[in-house]
Nucleic acid binder design. Structure first.
Length: 601
DNA sequence: GTCGCTTGCCAC
DNA sequence: AAACGTGGCAAGCGAC
């Protein structure tokens, strides 16, 4: 059968339709699953359900919420099979708000299925449906969606105002669970056969992050406001000073460059498109009050507008901020976070002491009776590299009680006296990460702050010491290129994605990084599930790639930290490479106090 | 006024 | 032969 021929759509607007729906439901077998979806007044947290839809591959039902919501609730109570949704976190959350609770363990997300099979494709329902089910129907539906989103249709209606009885609205609504069901029919056999564990991990992590989103992160709003006001005042006053003194706009790079050129400074760094670069590195090297003022203004503006502004303006009545966590954020299986992104809060730094305030804004919601716990893996990606390359000297270094990069530096420089403060340790660390990212010698030299000749020597020595790493890199690329011949595109198989393709032809070197990053993301997600199973789910707030942040009442801190240590340290998950993690704690996320386990307490 | 592009910068 | 991966976000600016 082609496309959607023969599909029947119903609007449940009478007792007669309700009876038809009940009779239809009675004929469903639990193994057949049901698709569901909601239409809401919008995408904001405060927006509510207007229509709830259910369906299978041939029949879709649109249920107006205000009048017939109880019918949907009744179906949820009766159905004991699988529920399918595309982007389930959104719909289940909206239904939660209406006091209708979907049975989470029985809800499977078709968006996750597309992602684990091939993250190269768009996961948006309309695109997946157009690709797998019926292009014309999906595109017509997308057109309506756009007109409702921006009110651009002839009617001027929006998601909030469109009459439920408007034909295109309810029919396309009723079609969504049908499309979801069809997608499931096509994708589930592939997922089941090739990447079922990946699907189960992503589906489980989705519910864990949904809980984190609801729980939120507490903000010390008085402190955040004080810093925001102070930084913003500097931003405004310095801009005025720049205008008064030099007659230019502080935010206009071209104008600033011109003033500095007239003052005798030369510029040789270019941007991607060939303009004169004026980044912090360039500014830092210019000994001129204008350059230094612009630099400091940029620093404080970044802190005020990217972080503090959200902290001040977007907290709820309990001073909690609720970012949105995207489990399928990166095509390497990493998660991403937005509004705001708490994965890129500045760390403590000597060059920008003002930045310390940002992590100090995120504090425990329990005041004097709570503690923030931060637990992060130690060099997780380097361990992944050692594991996948099976590189014995690296594995040995990970078993040493000493610092990993000190041990590596001793090998590279053939000097047993190297200590942690030796600058050669940093060079070797940079060499390691340059390998993971696929950097050339030139970029490696630049980031390590060494000359090209030294970089060449270090890299030569590195390859000599770790031949397994080079072999691993070459093998990954060779296999990928072979796949290009036989399957049309070069790709790697990661633990949570069946095919991770290169973004651009000629960038095959990046596949090594995809593999390592994808492996690390899988380890992290498995540990989130273990931590949740061990009872830590109620305290967890933020996942940061290799770190979990928790907000714990003091009476549970000792046990929570102990559980974290037990879950996150693992000498089995990476073969001969031990995975270790460190816990720190304090009143705020910025606290650095190391947690030491006291046995026998 | 909005949109898309560019530039810059924060994290892991 | 060539070569730093994954994200989110804000501000300036020209184009519509």
């Amino acid at each position: 059968m082609s496309g959607l021929d023969g599909v029947t759509l119903h609007l449940v607007d009478s007792m007669d339709e309700v009876l038809k729906l009940r009779s239809w439901l009675g004929e469903r077998r639990p193994q057949h699953a049901l698709g569901f979806d909601t239409e809401t007044t919008g995408l904001e947290f405060t927006d509510t359900v207007r229509l709830a839809q259910i369906g299978d591959g041939m029949t879709g039902w649109a249920i107006p919420w205000d009048r017939w919501g109880g019918v949907f609730e009744d179906v949820v109570a009766r159905w004991d099979g699988l529920w399918l949704a595309h982007n389930m976190k959104f719909d289940v959350g909206k239904l939660d708000n209406e006091d209708v609770f979907m049975p989470r363990p029985r809800v499977h997300d078709t968006r996750i299925m597309t992602q684990v099979l091939d993250p190269h494709y768009s996961t948006a329902l309309k695109n997946v449906a157009a690709r797998l089910v019926d292009a014309a129907a999906a595109n017509a539906q997308a057109l309506l969606n756009t007109s409702l989103t921006d009110g651009s249709g002839e009617s001027g209606w929006t998601w909030k105002t469109v009459p439920i009885t408007y034909g295109p609205y309810w029919t396309y609504g009723a079609l969504d669970p049908v499309l979801t069901y069809r997608i499931w029919e096509i994708l589930w056999p592939q997922v089941d056969a090739t990447c079922r564990e990946a699907f189960e991990i992503e589906n489980a992590v989705t519910w864990i992050t949904e809980r984190m989103e609801r729980r939120g992160v507490h903000i010390n709003t008085a402190f955040a406001r004080e810093k925001y006001d102070a930084f913003t005042a500097y931003v405004t006053e310095s801009a005025q000073w720049v205008k008064d003194t030099y007659g230019v706009t502080a935010g206009s790079n071209a104008a600033i460059v011109q003033v500095l050129q007239e003052a005798g400074f030369a510029f040789d760094k270019a941007t991607a498109s060939g303009a004169v670069a004026l980044d912090k590195e360039v500014l830092g090297a210019i000994d001129h009050p204008l350059a230094q003022t612009i630099l400091q203004r940029r620093r404080l503006q970044k802190l005020a507008s990217t972080y503090l502004k959200h902290f001040v303006e977007e907290v709820d009545a309990h001073d909690l901020i609720h970012p949105s966590i995207n489990v399928l954020g990166a095509r390497t299986s990493r998660m991403s976070m937005e509004r705001p992104n708490l994965q890129n809060l500045p760390r403590k730094s000597n060059s920008n002491p003002a930045a310390d305030a940002i992590r100090e804004c995120a504090d425990t919601r329990y005041g004097e009776t709570g503690t923030m716990l931060m637990c992060d893996f130690d060099q997780i990606e380097m361990r992944g590299l050692a594991y996948m390359a099976n590189e014995q000297p690296m594995i040995d270094a990970f078993h040493s009680p000493n610092d990993f990069f000190v041990e590596l530096a001793k090998l590279v420089y053939d000097d047993d006296l190297i200590v942690k403060t030796d600058p050669r340790r940093q060079v070797v660390k940079n060499a390691g990460y340059a390998t993971i990212y696929g950097a050339g010698v030139e970029k490696f030299a630049l980031t390590a702050g060494i000359d090209i000749d030294t970089a060449h020597r270090v890299r030569r020595r590195w390859n000599e010491l770790f031949p397994g790493v080079a072999k691993f890199q070459n093998d990954v690329i060779a296999v990928a290129l072979q796949r290009r011949e036989t399957e049309g595109a070069p790709y790697v198989r990661c633990p949570l994605t069946r095919r991770r393709q290169v973004a651009d032809a000629g960038k095959e070197y990046a596949l090594v990084n995809y593999l390592i990053q994808g492996w690390a993301a899988a380890v992290f997600k498995k540990k989130l599930i273990e931590a949740d199973d061990a009872g830590l789910g109620e305290w967890m707030c933020v996942p940061v790639h290799d770190e979990i942040v928790l907000d714990v009442p003091n009476e549970h801190v000792t046990e929570a930290a102990h559980t974290l240590v037990k879950v996150m340290n693992d000498d089995r998950i990476a073969g001969p490479v031990p995975i270790t993690a460190s816990v720190s704690y304090g009143r705020t996320w910025g606290s650095k106090e190391a947690w030491v386990e006291h046995h026998g307490e």
